[in-house]
């Protein structure tokens, strides 16, 4: 069982992780001086089409989330009932909604909301998942066994189902979207870190630190963690895309951000009754969501090719939305 098909298994996570296909911890091309490493990395990004296209889209999204509120032509929440269901025009490029709100401005404001939600959720899952993965991979034994069995159980559910289960407990709000998405993705982060740690725990520099009598925490965070950075960056950039996917999907189901927030998923949800009367209400937010997630996926795929070449095309969709 140590050779499951292209590691797709880890994602569904029911079986024990196949050690032979686990991710490489130290990426080649990450040696050398810091400046030299970054220069080489930048060249790699430019040479990899998926990474560079992804980077452009993600950068655009990031810039929009920074300056969006300053360039949006209208308020995202002010009603203008006289102007409801307006077709796309020059004044309202994406049309107006049932309350006369400018869809273009709402989409622009939505970038910041999506970015904040996704970044906070990714950060949260890193905060939970990283220590757990480090501890499980380094100390092994019963602790590892327990942690891995629990992540198995959590990963046995498609992520949207797990998210719904947690939403039922916490209730739906913007803040809870962060918690839910963070909790859902934490086990996956833990697995990535754990496999990186496993590959490193018997390396000489770790043994040396042990021989010096360093504390466990020091070894984990100062010796092991910096060397799992490559897979961690890949994971984080892929997670950002997923976080947007899951967060907008929850809002689409009416279980995420509440109205009148200009959330993209919520906008598609609110457009449903008017899908034929005012298709632009659906089309424009949909295209923006699609473009953003495509951007993060391209960037993630490209980064993986560059930083983590041994982990060829692993799971994507077992993420489940």
């Amino acid at each position: 069982m140590s050779t499951s098909p292209s590691g797709v298994h880890d994602a569904t996570g029911v079986s024990a992780p196949p050690p032979a296909t686990e991710g490489a911890a130290v990426a080649p091309g990450m040696q050398g001086s810091r400046a030299g490493r970054w220069r080489r990395f930048w060249e790699d990004v430019r040479r990899t089409p998926s990474a560079s296209v992804g980077l452009v889209i993600v950068a655009g999204f990031f810039i929009l989330s920074l300056i969006g509120p300053y360039i949006a032509p209208h308020s995202p929440t002010d009603f203008d009932i006289a102007n409801k269901f307006g077709r796309p025009t020059l004044a309202h490029p994406f049309g107006t909604d049932p309350f006369g709100r400018d869809v273009f401005s709402r989409v622009i404001y939505g970038a910041r909301l999506s970015f904040l939600l996704a970044a906070a959720a990714t950060l949260f899952s890193l905060l939970i998942g990283t220590p757990l993965g480090l501890i499980a991979g380094y100390y092994q034994g019963w602790l590892d066994e327990v942690l891995m069995r629990v992540t198995d159980a959590l990963l046995a559910l498609p992520s949207i189902i797990l998210a719904l289960l947690i939403v039922t407990t916490l209730g739906s709000s913007a803040f809870n979207v962060i918690l839910v998405v963070g909790i859902v993705y934490a086990p996956r982060i833990a697995r990535v870190i754990r496999s990186g740690t496993l590959a490193l725990r018997n390396e000489e520099f770790v043994q040396a630190a042990r021989a010096r009598g360093e504390s466990g925490a020091y070894i984990l965070f100062s010796e092991v963690l910096p060397n799992t950075i490559a897979p961690l960056i890949v994971e984080a950039s892929i997670r950002m895309g997923f976080a947007i996917l899951l967060a907008t999907s929850l809002s689409f189901l009416g279980l995420g951000v509440s109205p009148p927030a200009p959330d993209w998923g919520l906008m598609v949800n609110e457009a449903r009754p008017h899908i034929f009367r005012a298709p632009w209400l659906t089309i424009f937010p949909s295209l923006v969501i699609a473009l953003t997630i495509v951007g993060f996926n391209l960037l993630g795929d490209g980064l993986r090719d560059i930083l983590d070449p041994r982990r060829v095309w692993t799971e994507r969709r077992s993420e489940g939305v």
């Binding site: 907008t248 999907s249 998923g265 598609v268 949909s286 699609a290 997630i293």
Partner: peptide, 15 residues
């Protein structure tokens, strides 16, 4: 296909 969320592709298909 793999990147676009189901609620986006589904809504666009309906339109």
């Amino acid at each position: 296909g793999i990147s676009i969320p189901a609620f986006v592709s589904g809504s666009l298909l309906i339109i």
